[in-house]
Simulated assay, not measured.
Amino acid sequence: MTRKLHIVSSVGDVTERIWWSGTPYAIWQAILRRRGDVETHNVMLGYRLQRIIGWGNALLGLGKYNPTRVGFGHALSVRRAQAIVDKAGAADFLHIGSAHLPVKPRPGQRHWMFTDGSVFFEIVNPNNIFARYPGHRRELVKHERAMARQLDGVFTTADYVAQSFIEKDGMPPERVVPVKSGLGHILPDPGVKDYAGGYILFIAKQNFIGKGGRLLLDAFEIVRRERPQTRLVIIGNVDDVTQQEDLPRMQNDAAIDFYNYDTPEYRTLLAGATLYAGPADNEPWGIVYLESLTVRTPILGLAHNAFPQFAADGAYGFTAEAATPEAVATAILDALSDPDRLARMGAAGREHVLAEYVWDRVVDHILSRYPEQAA
Rank of each mutant, 00 (worst) to 15 (best):
H6D: 03
I7F: 11
V8H: 02
G12A: 06
V14W: 04
T15V: 04
R17C: 00
A26H: 15
I27E: 06
A30T: 07
R33G: 09
N42C: 15
V43Q: 03
V43I: 10
M44Y: 08
I53T: 03
G56H: 08
G61K: 10
F72Q: 05
D86R: 11
K87F: 00
A90V: 06
A90R: 14
F93V: 11
L94N: 01
P105H: 05
R106Q: 15
R110G: 07
G117Y: 11
V124D: 12
I129L: 06
I129E: 11
F130I: 13
A131S: 15
R132N: 08
P134M: 09
P134A: 05
G135C: 04
R145I: 10
L151W: 09
L151P: 09
V154F: 05
V161L: 07
K168M: 14
M171L: 10
V176Q: 04
V177D: 00
K180F: 13
G182R: 10
P190T: 12
K193W: 03
D194S: 03
D194H: 02
G197I: 02
G198C: 02
L201R: 03
I203R: 00
G210T: 06
G210C: 04
R214A: 13
L216P: 04
A219N: 11
E226T: 15
R231A: 14
V238D: 04
D240M: 05
T242C: 01
L247C: 08
N252H: 14
N252R: 13
D253T: 13
Y261F: 14
Y266D: 00
L270M: 15
G272E: 02
E283F: 12
W285V: 09
V288A: 11
V295G: 03
A306V: 12
Y316S: 09
G317Q: 08
D334R: 15
D340H: 02
L342H: 04
A343E: 13
A343R: 13
A343I: 03
R344C: 03
G346A: 06
G349C: 04
E351I: 07
A355G: 05
V358P: 01
W359T: 12
Y370F: 15
P371M: 10
A374H: 11
